[in-house]
Amino acid sequence: MTLAIARRTAILLLSVLAASVVVFAFMAVLPGDPAQVALGVNATPELVERTRQEFGLDRPLLTQYLDWMGGVASGDFGTSYVTRETIGPQLLDRLGVTLWLVGSGMLVALLIAMPLGTIAAVRHRRPSGAAVSGFSQLGMAVPAFLAGIILVQAFAVQLGWLPSGGWTPPAHDPAAWLRGLVLPAVSLGLVQGAVLTRYVRTSVLDVMREDYLRTARAKGLRPYPALLRHGLRNAAVPVVTVLGLQLATLLVGAVVIERVFVLPGLGSMLLDAVAARDLLTVQSIVLVLVAGVLLVNFAVDLLYTVLDPRLRRS
């Protein structure tokens, strides 16, 4: 058990390290050098050279990489070539917004998918089950940002119930924060919920055919209680895999939703940094997002062993 966790942790760390090399190399091989890109084509060669020296861009790539990673490991992401501000604190701040968005989006998706997927499975031979399947098929085809645009139109512009965008920190005004989070979270969660519904349906259907569910019925459990007590935990294993993959999609999907709702998250920071040609900031945000995806995969692997006792050995 502990050995498996240790092995998983090692894979996680190696993967993050490999990802950091990829991200760094990608930014390092770009045509022209980062100082030139940041300063623009009109900058004098002298200014470019001074900037290169200031940020250590004239050193060998390996030194630059080690320096960068050394900083990142201790939470120091360096100083932006463009704004000349330290990247770390802002990154952390923005990450908070994105995590709230992703977390609440996932919650909405689960609240949609768990009951609907189960109903679709249990009633798969009846019209209501087919209707749920059809709904999820349709929901999958709607881009999250379109859902966002439509929701804003309906609930913010027409009905005026909720704000159309913007962010209030939860510590500042919890009520305003919650109201501001509803539409982004629903836009993000609606589409993911539709995707997830299909997976929940499939795995509940699989579990319904299992012998142990028949044993549970033979004990005297009625169909729904049997499914709830004996089926859900087993059905959860494949769903959790998809959930993990979806969290990764949500993390990137949040980039788009942040743009629609003007939220100061990691995504809008990334897009702003790209627009400002602030490559070190881009590099740092990409690394954080990729590490986030890897971390989620790691968590999913651990969750398996909790859900399925058969995997606890070795």
Partner: peptide, 16 residues
């Protein structure tokens, strides 16, 4: 009335 099934390997809930 109670029942014993053919396949003991799959008749019990693996997660309980």
């Amino acid at each position: 009335l109670a029942m014993v099934f053919q396949e003991p390997m799959s008749a019990l809930n693996p997660a309980m």
